[in-house]
Design a protein around this nucleic acid. Structure first.
Length: 813
RNA sequence: GCGAACGUGGCGGAAUUGGUAUACGCGCGAGACUUAGGAUCUCGUGGGGAAACCCGUCCGGGUUCGAGUCCCGGCGUUCGCACCA
């Protein structure tokens, strides 16, 4: 670290943090702002480890943007909060033998300290935690709104169950079929769970993604959402099997003539009726085996397919032929109808299955040069591949056309109909856990599932010392008799509370609505506040939430819009995904021991240096590589600026005239930094500032006007530092209330330009000419160059390419 | 397997519409000031060559006066999704 500039970050940063707090610099006037700008970043889960660099990188990037927008004259509202419910907290609490209700406030206090020390422009008076009763009361209210609209319903669903820990596991906690914590094999359990009908909104959720007037999002995020929604077009086809009718969904109705067997998911409701007595035992055994598998390995494609025949047959409506019915766990109950028509000739999975169990494989599509009889060595699955064969009247039609033709026939003959299918499934919000908002439902023997009346909210999560889940599969809340047994709100007879809590994703699906209205206790979000501040102007966050969090937030917003409570249906006007930080080329992880503790860096280098380094180490939207050795660069840079500021406050600092080169660089930098900040190109914005500083030092320029504006451009990155410099340079008020410097477009143009001289495209020299020199002048200057004359000697110039202001290229032969 | 992004010095990374490749920073080398320096300042820093020049943006082709950038074919890395019919 440097000795001679007396810049001591600790003092400067403490001073300005105190000043901001005292003068309420970071608060926005939520009721009167004329140019509201809602700058949102993804609120963190307050872990016991504290903020990691990844958080800090993301928050700094978003903070830089918010500060920049404020300096441009926007009224920026930049809130922060904590996503503190969930399995993660609960597991950690169990591990350290504490109660989450005790642990979380500690963690939040630590996070708050860290977020303050990084110098974020947070509107702390609107801080929220999803675990506060004043917050989750409204999460429960939200559930009731969905319930009222018929968008919340109960059905049986499978969960991963660890028999040792006696708890439900998320899919990510199951590693290779075993519990990530104790290693015992995970089982599947079927429980009644609450679901939200997000699938009703699939079409809108998809369509809006392409509507630029509603949402301007990172391309990668839009794509991830589209893939998740997974729209496909095909047909539902009904196969008759004795008294039963089996519906299947297919994207390839054109291959109907090639359907040589049907496959149902093992848990399909018709399995029982379709099993012949001879096959009963085998079918039962197979179902039991499939049911015992954990959800993860059931779904992760195992190469070897298995299944059993049920003994009965169905009629292929196109050929009239009877085809056997099988069950196999490669068919999933959750997708489509839970049953497929198997076309082994044109589907890879069906091909594998048919090969293994010696089922007939029929070719119904032929490519150029193939005939109806050409044997298939593998499935030919490409729709665009060719024309139909072995398909009666559809022979010779291109497959794509046949798809429409067969669908029309299905509809006219009553065997099926065209169908748009989404991959998206309904959102299961039940968690058989303790640490979450209780789902506000009361069960009554007479009235069924009764919603808790809104005026009785909140359903407070009771303090239970032993919050560990037990073997019963019901939440520990059921053991708290006083809480559990309540009268039915409808009839008054004894009832029981729902003991599941809701998914953490529900907490975070509406937090952005709460922030501006966080002080209202009688409403989740105030209409006037909401009208002024929403939808969110800018949202910056990680792509790990590209799908679930962002999709759920959009869904909830749409539901509230449809209920007439919000005027908009898309919550985030712009969304930008930031990149990931790695350390010395490798992902950071506890096991590798390369996790960075930001506190150490902040106390050693100062928050401003650390922020500047984080923003400089790579493109914000791509992330970058954290290296200890790199931090000294930004620190030296701040020291140099500090020195310039010291010089610019001396009585004789004024330059009689600012040199032209400096003038141009100065105005170019103002323009460039503003443009780069707008695009979140922070690393290049900082590089531009470094260039300006280098130029000022080379030219011995200490002109206060220039230095003051330099400090302004730097302010979003190094806020405490900039405030201090601003004060020393006699700026009034906070630097963040001073307007962003403007540039003079006539001054960003240099008076002379460098022309590249080429022969056959190879650079042979350069020459500086006046910017407005005409072609003849430029050519004459270029022809004087040694490198050019040497290469033109004895050659015939066939052509001269002249690009004004750039180059002259002689094409010779 | 499918989808997407990317591949540039010793390292992190820059390069408007195709127009001086390597900005900015780290590191490294030499020098200055110093009792000292892991501080600071100055100069240098892609490879080869005395020079003229030649070679250089993962590899191989192509388009063009000119390609890091565009097209085709490989190889590699990373990130999503993953038996979705």
């Amino acid at each position: 670290m440097t000795d001679h500039p007396d810049y001591t970050p600790t003092e400067v940063e403490a001073k300005w943090r105190a000043r901001w707090h005292a003068e309420r610099t970071n608060e926005a006037d939520l009721d009167h702002a004329s140019r509201p700008f809602y700058n949102l970043m993804m609120f963190p889960y307050p872990s016991a480890e504290g903020l990691h660099v990844g958080n800090l990188f993301a928050f700094t990037g978003a903070d830089v943007f918010g500060r920049f927008k404020r300096m441009q004259g926007w009224n920026v509202f930049q809130p922060m909060g904590f996503d503190a419910f969930g399995i993660h907290s609960e597991n950690f609490a169990m591990k350290v033998g504490m109660h989450p209700a005790e642990l979380i406030p500690r963690n939040i206090a630590n996070f708050t300290r860290q977020l303050t020390s990084m110098g974020g422009m947070f509107a702390w008076e609107h801080v929220l935690s999803t675990t506060d009763v004043s917050y989750y009361k409204w999460t429960q209210w939200l559930f009731l709104q969905l319930f009222k609209q018929g968008l919340a319903y109960k059905k049986k669903g499978s969960v991963n169950w660890c028999p040792t820990d006696k708890t439900v596991l998320a899919n990510e906690q199951v590693i290779g079929g075993a519990c990530e914590r104790c290693g015992s094999m995970v089982e599947q359990r079927v429980l009644e769970q609450w679901y939200f009908r997000i699938t009703d909104y699939a079409g809108r959720l998809l369509a809006n993604l392409d509507d630029k007037s509603l949402m301007d999002w990172s391309e990668s995020t839009v794509l991830a959402q589209k893939n998740w929604l997974g729209r496909s077009e095909g047909a539902t086809i009904r196969f008759v099997a004795g008294k039963e009718s089996i519906a299947v969904y297919t994207t390839r109705p054109d291959t109907l003539f090639g359907a040589t067997f049907l496959v149902l998911a093992p848990e399909h409701p018709l399995v029982e009726q379709l099993t012949t007595p001879a096959e009963r035992a085998a079918a039962e055994a197979y179902r039991a085996q499939a049911a015992a598998k954990d959800l993860v390995s059931r779904k992760v494609g195992e190469k070897e397919k298995t299944g059993v025949a049920l003994g009965s047959t169905a009629i292929n409506p196109a050929t009239g032929a009877p085809i056997p019915i099988w069950i196999a766990d490669y068919v999933l109950m959750e997708y489509g109808t839970g049953a497929i028509m198997a076309v082994p000739g044109h589907d890879e999975r069906d091909f594998d299955f048919a090969t293994k169990y010696r089922l007939p494989i029929v070719r119904v599509v032929a490519r150029e040069g193939e005939s109806a009889d050409t044997p298939l060595a593998e499935a030919l699955a490409d729709v665009d591949a060719g024309r139909l064969v072995n398909s009666g009247e559809y022979d010779n039609l291109p497959a794509l056309e046949a798809k429409r033709a067969v669908t029309r026939w299905l509809e006219s003959s009553g065997h099926g109909e065209g169908k748009v299918q989404f991959r998206l499934y309904d959102w299961c919000i039940s968690r058989q856990r303790y640490w979450g908002p209780p789902i506000p439902i009361i069960y009554c023997d007479d009235c069924g599932a009764v919603p808790v009346p809104e005026e009785q909210l909140p359903v407070v999560l009771p303090q239970i010392d032993d919050f560990r889940p037990d073997d019963s599969g019901v939440s520990p809340l059921a053991r708290h008799a006083e809480w559990y047994f309540v009268p039915c709100p409808t009839c008054g007879k004894p009832g029981r509370r729902e003991t599941d809590v809701s998914d953490t994703f529900l907490d975070s699906a509406w937090y952005f609505l709460r922030y501006p209205s966080s002080e209202f206790t009688d409403r989740p979000f105030d209409p006037a506040r909401t009208a002024r501040w929403l939808p969110v102007t800018s949202y910056i966050g990680g792509n790990e939430h590209a799908v679930l969090h962002l999709l759920y937030s959009r869904f909830i917003t749409m539901v509230l819009h449809d209920a007439g409570m919000l005027s908009f249906e898309e919550p985030f006007r712009t969304f930008r995904a930031h990149g990931l930080i790695v350390k010395d080329g490798a992902k950071m992880s506890k096991s590798k021991g390369n996790v960075i503790n930001p506190d150490e860096y902040i106390s050693k280098w100062g928050a401003d240096t650390f922020r500047t380094y984080l923003m400089f180490l790579g493109p914000f939207q791509e992330g970058g590589d954290f290296r200890d050795s790199g931090i000294s660069g930004p620190r030296r840079f701040l020291d140099k600026v500090w020195e310039l500021v010291s010089q610019a406050t001396h009585p004789d600092c004024r330059d009689a005239e600012i040199r032209h080169e400096v003038l141009v660089k100065w105005h170019q930098t103002k323009k460039r930094v503003a443009e780069e900040l707008e695009l979140l190109h922070y690393n290049t914005a900082i590089a531009a500032l470094m260039e300006l500083v280098n130029a000022l030092r080379e030219q011995n320029c200490t002109e206060p006007t220039v230095v003051r504006e330099l400090v302004q451009l730097l302010a979003p990155f190094a806020p405490h530092f900039a405030e201090e410099c601003w004060e020393r340079l006699a700026g009034t008020g906070s630097i963040f209330d001073a307007r962003w410097p403007t540039w003079d477009p006539t001054l960003i143009i240099e008076s002379s330009v460098t022309i590249v001289a080429q022969v056959n495209g190879k650079t042979r020299g350069t020459v500086a000419v006046a910017r407005d020199a005409d072609e003849a002048t430029v050519r004459a200057a270029v022809e004087q160059l040694d490198g050019i004359t040497r290469h033109l000697e004895g050659m015939t110039v066939r052509k001269v390419i002249y690009v004004p202001g750039r180059l002259v290229n002689f094409v010779v032969g």
